[in-house]
Design a binder for these strands. Structure first.
Lengths: 188, 188, 188, 188
DNA sequence: CATGAATGAGCGTTCATTCAT
DNA sequence: GATGAATGAACGCTCATTCAT
């Protein structure tokens, strides 16, 4: 049976890890994470067998949360452009709301320690977004390109946009709109 | 002056570091790097005072090399679209030729250890590309967005494109072209 | 509380350090100390954060122990000369009983690494002895000299005496008596 | 042939070592010493084969210099008390003039690295002082104690006195006189 | 001879993980 | 199960000494 004990503690560890990664990077000691989570250091290992597993699960959790946030409340009967815009707004809004999650994810993404299984699962979590992108680009210039590639472009544009929203929050809305326009033109 | 510091050895270390980072990540022991460079452990520190300094300098070197490669042989009298295409091709070609450099750079980019001075210097190295991007987008949709942002989008698109060229070399040319089309449409 | 820090182990480390310092000096590797204490390398740092801290605490402990030993069983109602003699004998006896402690202390005393806070605390530990010295010298030649200085002379004479007792144990008693006579004449 | 080259450089190294030892202790890197002597680090080893040899020779040199200073201009026809006082004053004056030499000597004295041969030679350098002490104590309380011991007491009293002269220079003369009185009473 | 880069054994310390309590 | 002390392999870095120039 997974997650033997308190789900609360497990979440506390994941959140603490997020914060710690942002400030100290992936080489942060596990002790820093348990301290940030206000749990004794040994307890961390009752929830995650190894540091690598913790990072793997954190990565997956963050990706899933991001994907869920993006698809939240999507009106599947609306026009495609409206759907894409809604997803984009959700996505950017998630980035604004959880800058630390976004930054931690960025680091985890670059790490060689994340297993390919986890990367696949993370990719799968984005299936909803990918599907929408697929429908939007159906008659556009990238209609023949592999969907993974197109999603990759959309994704990296999203990350760049969120980064600038975070760096310069005053213009967050402008970045959001400009990012969407860019993606829209790429897909059409 | 007896045995002046050899630039050859310095370069050997940087190249070895590149290779090691790709396979082992940034947490690779310095000993792995010196071994890969076929020099004794202690000698690494004759050239770089600390591991962090080595990574800083490697990052800067890679960014500069990439920027130089992108601008190589640019015909400043040609049309803007041709100029941008040439830069893009150079850039992608560099990525294909040195996949390890590209991947190492990706990891260094995400690291919290790279100093902001180094990041600024790296940014400055891209001034030529940024200037061209600025001229191309002058009448486009992103004409009012901060140039940094526009360059950021172009850059992340370039990275994604190179990544797919590397993953699926058979279609490298198609990715290159598709990436350029995407960027072109974003900037216009 | 699982496995609370053991005072036994702490003491074992301090004793081992004493022995090692005598034979190898202050530059002895911490590994030599943990080996002598029959504990694993890393455990030393559970008890002392740094080598310097270990030495600081050892110094203080030795000074305190020495001072305690000197004052042991002092009859405060006896004549001053008898009190001083008793303290002197205690002191010398401690030196004879723990030659390694004395020698380690000597090295620590000379080290630039001992903090001034620790030196102050060590000085404070000698307050009882200092007070007695003060009363003895009250009518002597050194009655106007700073007490610190007078105690310094007494202390260095004590150290020299113990050193010779150790070098030539056969005559230990004679050195002890001669040392006392010297101190007595200095103070009167 | 000893001292192959520039005696000037040799002295510069010894002086630099003195200064460095005072501030950094005996564990100071040889590079710190050569830097302080303003010579290249490799050159140090053309003058002293090893760090230990440098320290050995420095110790001996300092001891000899101190002894020479103490005996300087001694009027062997004066009364013993006057002779001893003169030696004492010379000695204390040397300590005041070269506090760094005194402090470095203190550290070297405590070090386990100084060979016993060197210690013997250092002891021999004090023969003149020892002889005078011997004559002074001839009819005193310590007349039967080993001369080495008596000299040891005198020496440690001298060191303590010089230390306080250095700590509190305003009262240097008083310490000097009080130290002499103490020694005088010990020897008589 | 003089130099300073090169060397590699060695050190203090860290930290993921284990395990006695 | 929960804890935090214990562990020991590993790491970044130092530095006395060597040696190519």
């Amino acid at each position: 049976m997974p997650r033997p004990k308190s789900d609360v503690k497990r979440s506390a560890i994941l959140e603490a890890a997020t914060r710690v990664i942002v400030t100290q990077g992936l080489s942060a000691p596990t002790a820093a994470i348990s301290k940030a989570a206000e749990i004794p250091n040994g307890s961390l290992f009752t929830y995650f067998a190894t540091k690598a597993e913790l990072f793997d699960q954190l990565y997956l959790e963050l990706k899933r949360e991001q994907a869920m946030a993006a698809m939240e409340g999507l009106r599947r009967d609306a026009e495609l452009s409206a759907q894409l815009f809604q997803v984009w707004e959700n996505w950017m809004w998630w980035g604004r709301s959880f800058p630390e999650k976004r930054r931690a994810m960025e680091q985890l993404d670059a790490s060689v320690e994340i297993t390919s299984e986890t990367r696949s699962a993370a990719h799968a979590a984005m299936a909803g977004v990918a599907d929408l992108v697929d429908r939007v680009r159906a008659k556009g210039h990238l209609r023949k390109a592999p969907l993974r590639f197109v999603v990759g472009i959309v994704n990296s544009t999203a990350e760049t946009t969120m980064e600038f929203m975070d760096l310069d929050p005053w213009n967050a809305k402008n970045y959001c709109r400009a990012g969407f326009d860019a993606v829209w033109r790429v897909l059409n």
